[in-house]
Nucleic acid binder design. Structure first.
Lengths: 230, 230
DNA sequence: AGATAAGGTGTCAAAATTACACCATTAAAT
DNA sequence: ATTTAATGGTGTAATTTTGACACCTTATCT
């Protein structure tokens, strides 16, 4: 197979919707673009797929180069292929989402000059984004909302040890609606995949809550019946 | 924007998983390829996206050219982007599914020479397919299985007038398991989106069943709360 | 008339879901 | 020391949904 860079008027790219949960809010990663087109605009982390890498591999590389984040589980969710979605040529983009614990995260630092900076932004107050990235975000958000009840979405957003109130807050942020506390706890605990720790929350100015851990193995024993992400 | 055909070593294509239901069996459309690579192999209908058409438009055109079928609702479900999935170059493919009533359908006749013929084949006995088309089929099949309970999948496969037994058979073919007759009927009728006709089934050598019609508007009133296909 | 094949129907138990309110605990403020 | 503010933590009852299960009816064919 001949080695040749793709003609820029026909290329594929990756765009990433990376979700985090912090201070009771759902957030996504944005970058400030440092190159045309849409220089200085806010955008999803995204770039062009190279000739000798799979689309899945490209997703990981691109996220790393633009944000410094590595080893996320990137999940493809849709491909956007309108003719004029990119002002400089024919570029279709494969969109991925991923979930990450913001808390313990190192500083976000773009490796390439393509992004001036990367930062978290609450999903409820997003500015206009470059390209069709607003639409891409909404599609991705809908995906995780749909999958919340059969994939461990919330547990990948929360710290390793979390309280039931934090867990509920995470569900509420994703679903954008209030849930009943007693029913939520009853149901979550009934599954049996939450392990109660002897530890308690620290540094709060009110009664400290019990901490729980997520047991991924038990979770998948329960939900594996279904076809999961395919 | 410059007009140029994509270099063949970097292109995007469409592949289509078209489902039909006939004689109690779930089937998909296959073509017999008439060109290299994989000449003479069986394959999903698929081809290269043109420079000046969106991916969604390409899906409709390509299906038409290879099978003569038109005006289907094509639903994108996954993009396959392994480096070597196409032996002749870098081609990522966007996969679509669609659902169609086989019964009233005109003859399948490829418009281009690219396919020698197009035909229905039961999903339960598929031969090896060209490229990674077997994987694409499985991914698509899983998608419709997942969506069976909140999208009118079965009703797009059945003729306009159908019996409850046919409906159940369609569900069973997609889920690949037997369902309880009384519970199935109770549930389906309880939704209220099935309209009982005064007509009955004809031409059967046993007691004729009542015919029903699907009321799409009522269906979506019930299921629209959810984020549907996005 | 009898055989064959599918049509059509109801009940009960178990499980899951929903609505709903108050006392307990902790740290901070006074 | 007491009070205040904020969240933690808990149970019951009604309703809805699900799942298991068997027999008579109707139409056609021979």
């Amino acid at each position: 197979m001949e080695e040749r860079l793709p003609a820029f008027d026909s290329a594929f790219s990756i765009d990433c919707v990376i979700f985090g949960f912090e201070a009771g809010e759902l957030k996504i990663l944005l970058i400030e673009r440092n190159e045309e087109p849409f220089k200085d605009w806010l955008a999803l982390p995204g770039s062009i797929v190279k000739q000798e890498e799979s689309v899945d591999d490209a997703a990981e590389r691109i996220l790393y180069e633009l944000t410094g984040l590595r080893d996320l589980h990137m999940q493809q969710f849709h491909t956007f292929g309108e003719v004029h979605r990119h002002p400089q040529g024919r570029v279709i983009t494969v969109a991925y989402y991923a979930l990450i614990r913001i808390n313990g995260q190192k500083e976000l630092r773009p490796i390439t000059q393509f992004a001036r900076k990367a930062f978290w932004h609450p999903v409820n107050d997003l500015p206009k984004l470059a390209f069709d990235h607003s639409e891409i975000f909404h599609t991705g958000f809908n995906k995780i909302r749909r999958r919340l009840n059969y994939l461990p979405i919330a547990f990948e957003l929360l710290p390793e040890k979390f309280t039931l109130t934090q867990l509920q807050g995470c569900y509420e942020a994703i679903l954008n609606k209030k849930l009943d506390k007693r029913n939520f706890r009853k149901k979550m605990l009934s599954y049996g995949f939450l392990k109660e720790l002897s530890e308690k929350q620290k540094g709060v100015s009110y009664r400290a809550a019990k901490l729980y851990k997520f047991d991924r193995r038990k979770y998948f024993k329960i939900f594996q019946n279904d076809v999961t992400e395919s």
